[in-house]
Amino acid sequence: MSYQHGRLLSVPEAAERLGTGVRFVRRLIQERRITYVKVGRHVRIPEAALAAYIEANTVQPARRTRSHHRLAA
């Protein structure tokens, strides 16, 4: 697989960007829910992988529909 990863983030940097703790990011890695790179003993997360994770887990707001029936007061 040859594509540009961009900057590689450490686990604490990725946690800061997500606004979570380091344990959450480590769990994502352990469960292989996010792409990561092994650099020797170190684990790094590509910025593109973090952006893809955020995009894939973003929930759009529901559209509010108007009720055609009004309640009697």
Results as ranks from 00 to 15, higher is better:
A49N: 05
R26S: 01
P12L: 11
H42Q: 12
L9Y: 12
E55C: 02
E13M: 04
Y3R: 02
R70D: 04
L9T: 04
Q4V: 07
A72F: 14
H42V: 04
F24P: 01
V59T: 10
A49S: 15
H42C: 04
L50E: 10
H69L: 13
F24C: 07
V22A: 11
V39R: 12
G6N: 12
R41W: 13
Y53G: 00
P46H: 05
A72S: 13
R41P: 12
S10A: 07
Q30A: 10
R7I: 09
R7D: 08
H69W: 09
L18E: 09
M1Y: 07
R70Y: 04
G40R: 07
R41H: 14
T65A: 08
E47L: 14
V39W: 00
E13C: 01
A51S: 13
R33Y: 03
L8Q: 11
R7T: 08
I34H: 03
P61E: 04
L71T: 00
A49P: 09
K38F: 03
G19Q: 08
A48T: 12
L8W: 13
Q4I: 07
Q30R: 13
V43G: 00
I29W: 13
F24R: 11
A48Y: 07
R64N: 06
E13R: 03
S67T: 02
P46W: 03
E16Q: 15
M1D: 08
V59Y: 07
Y3S: 05
L28I: 03
L28S: 06
Y3F: 03
Y3C: 02
R63A: 13
R7W: 02
E16L: 15
I34Q: 01
V39Y: 02
A49E: 03
H42W: 04
R63K: 14
G40P: 02
V43N: 03
L28H: 07
R32A: 12
L71I: 01
S2L: 15
T58V: 08
S10E: 09
M1K: 05
V22I: 14
R7C: 05
Q30K: 12
Y53I: 01
N57T: 11
R63P: 10
Q60W: 10
Y36A: 05
R70W: 02
H42E: 13
